[in-house]
Computed example of a mutant assay.
Amino acid sequence: MQPIAGSWFMAGQARREAAELTVDPSGLARIVAQGEGRELARENAAELDVSSRLGQTPRFVRLPCGGVLETGDNDAVDALLHQWQPSRFRGWIHRLESHLPFVVVTAVLVLVLAWASIVHGLPAASERMAHALPAETLNTISRETLALMDKLYLEPSELSEEKQAELQSDFAPVLAAYPQLPLKVIFRKSWERLGANAFALPDGTMIFTDQIVTLAERNEELVAVLAHEVGHIHHRHSLRAMIQNSVIGIAYLMVVGDASAVGDLLVGLPVVAATLFYSRDHEMEADRFAVAYLDRQGIKRQAFVNILQRMDESARCRELLSEDDDIPVDELSESERVKLCDEFLAEGNEPKDSTLSNYLSTHPAMQERLERFVEYPRMGVR
């Protein structure tokens, strides 16, 4: 057979040396320095360890002595194996990857499996993991999260003690309805970025901002929001989202390689899209939980609809005002802010990129969400 040219690496050395592999009629394989004839190693051809063929990538011929010959002459290596190491299974990887229909079918199967894992497998696994975490883990995560929010987004509440006591009294029946959950409500004044809102932490703590209390026309509306937040805690949505987002992020980094690649917006969009899908799904699950409680207590679902509509208008107002650098948003009273928003909306102004903002939202589209909330059939809590 013809010599197989390549690069020789001695065991334990990084030095590359041009060499050739020859096999005599008796089956003795010899590695000789190219152009010199100096023997570098020898071994029986049947004992050579040859890497599988994959396209036109280089092959590695390993000898028991530890030396390696790297060569791009795949056809010559295949001929050597056919003669001295015959096997009907040899080269099957190369044959498969060279077969276009097989490649297409494999690609489709991989995409289907990836889709099924993200849409069905990961949510189911994250739910089991979230419910298996001990209470101490939930307390630690919640404590650190609240400390960070107090530092970045929240201030001590300016609600009067009387108002807080009144709300706690109205909230008490909701908390008592779920004795298996360590629920409690606290109040904070939020910075402009958050505005009128409510949040649930994994340990059962729910935060109501002063702004959402001011926005509510009746305490019944805040009770409806509270039932929704209890739904988040009952289903451990924050933990599930954290697990899901982490797994997707790690998996994506494993595919693209270096983490710096995610710095590009286009590279990061698949991760963003998947995590927002999970969050919207969690919001709808919490809505169904709230519906079940409101129906049992005889509270009209419209209470939740009304407060959400006002929250949506308030968010649009904040976005509109923030786009005008000449408006001192933080110094405006609520009445001044509403008046300015009404003027902007009357002029036909809308927040910039409102369509994109609605798509890249952790909540479902507001109108769709409210219609679905009203139309849910009467149900019990799972």
Score class of each variant (00 low, 15 high):
Tyr359Asp: 11
Ala196Tyr: 03
Phe344Cys: 03
Ala241Ile: 04
Pro156Arg: 02
Val23Leu: 02
Ala165Ser: 13
Asn306Cys: 03
Val272Tyr: 01
Leu159Asp: 08
Ser357Pro: 13
Ala11His: 15
Ala172Val: 05
Gly66Glu: 14
Lys163Gln: 12
Phe89Ser: 01
Asn306Phe: 00
Cys65Asn: 15
Arg318Leu: 12
Leu28Trp: 04
Ile93Gln: 14
Ala227Ser: 15
His94Glu: 01
Asp24Arg: 08
Arg38Asn: 00
Arg378Gln: 04
Glu36Tyr: 08
Phe277Asn: 05
Val230Gly: 11
Ser279His: 01
Val174Gly: 06
His282Leu: 10
Gln164Ala: 01
Gly231Trp: 11
Val230Thr: 06
Val77Gln: 00
Ala303Lys: 08
Leu40Tyr: 12
Asp78Thr: 07
Ala5Gln: 01
Leu183Tyr: 14
Pro182Leu: 13
Leu175Thr: 01
Ala216Cys: 07
Val305Asp: 00
Trp115Ser: 07
Glu144Ile: 15
Leu148Ala: 10
Asn44Asp: 08
Tyr376Pro: 14
Phe89Asn: 03
Ser117Phe: 09
Glu161Gln: 08
Ala274His: 03
Arg240Asp: 00
Glu336Val: 11
Pro86Leu: 00
Phe9Glu: 13
Asp325Thr: 14
Ser246His: 02
Asp203Trp: 12
Glu97Phe: 12
Gly66Met: 06
Val262Cys: 03
Ala114His: 12
Gln34Lys: 10
Val381Met: 07
Arg95Ile: 05
Ser26Ile: 08
Leu175Met: 10
Leu321Ile: 12
Leu239Ala: 01
Ile250Glu: 07
Val256Asp: 06
Ala172Asn: 10
Leu332Pro: 11
Glu39Asp: 01
Glu323Pro: 07
Lys163Met: 13
Gln13His: 15
Gly298Asn: 13
Arg193Asp: 00
Asp281Trp: 07
Glu47Asn: 14
Arg382Gln: 09
His363Met: 09
Gly55His: 07
Ser26Glu: 09
Phe102Lys: 02
Asp330Ile: 03
Ser246Glu: 04
Gln168Ser: 05
Ser52Gly: 00
Glu39Gly: 06
Cys65Ala: 15
Arg30Phe: 05
Val119Arg: 01
Ala251Lys: 05
Arg15Pro: 09
